[in-house]
């Protein structure tokens, strides 16, 4: 059996933990060995939130720099910061809508140019899928579903050990009824991203 090392990065409040949880539950449903590691504690305070899902024949809960197969970046600056995790064979899926860190919003630092950052990442990895997931999420009904949009894109672009139907099944059981239709729409919109 192969292995998949998927690393998630984002900013507190973007739902990285829910995304990793959903993917982990999907693996359990598909009977694929899975370890999910989360970072708790600082998530609500505007800091960087990183988590990991490893699937298949691999059991370490931590992914080393240079060993990520798929990077799921919910924020472009964090994508570049996490690029150290990637290799030339990595797939990167990146939301291009920035969340300014405080040093930038207070005018002390400048936010790097997004297209420059995407170009840098693109030159270092096998494939970069970068798009405004926030806009799609808004279209699906809420900016809060950026995480679900991105899961849709992951299931389209990565050769995963289970298909998108399994992930949708988990969304059915893991999301609040009132958000379900929106989440499924968000997932489908992400899945359509080419």
């Amino acid at each position: 059996m192969e292995s998949w090392r998927i690393f998630f990065t984002g900013v507190g409040g973007q739902g990285t933990l829910l995304a990793t949880r959903v993917l982990g539950e999907a693996a359990l449903l598909a009977n694929v060995p899975v370890v999910v590691s989360e970072v708790h504690g600082m998530a609500q305070r505007g800091g960087v939130v990183e988590s990991a899902v490893v699937l298949g024949q691999v059991q370490s809960p931590v992914i080393s720099d240079g060993e990520v197969d798929i990077l799921m970046a919910f924020e472009p600056l964090e994508a570049l910061r996490a690029a150290r995790k990637c290799s030339t064979s990595s797939l990167v899926i990146c939301n291009t809508s920035p969340v300014a860190p405080f040093s930038v919003s207070s005018g002390r630092d400048q936010y790097p140019d997004v297209s420059d950052m995407m170009q840098t990442i693109s030159s270092q990895v096998r494939n970069l899928v970068a798009y405004d997931a926030r806009a799609l999420a808004r279209e699906a009904g809420s900016e809060l579903s950026v995480n679900i949009v991105m899961l849709g894109t992951l299931m389209r672009h990565a050769k995963m050990p289970f298909d998108e139907k399994v992930v949708k099944k988990v969304l059915n059981t893991r999301t609040k009824k009132s958000f379900l239709a929106m989440n499924l729409k968000a997932f489908d919109m992400g899945y359509e991203v080419l």
Partner: peptide, 18 residues
């Protein structure tokens, strides 16, 4: 071990009081 380039020039994002 994989060659890794760590970017130290990016704006930091420390946790902050809400």
């Amino acid at each position: 071990p994989p060659a890794v380039e760590i970017r130290s020039d990016l704006p930091q994002r420390p946790p902050n009081l809400c």
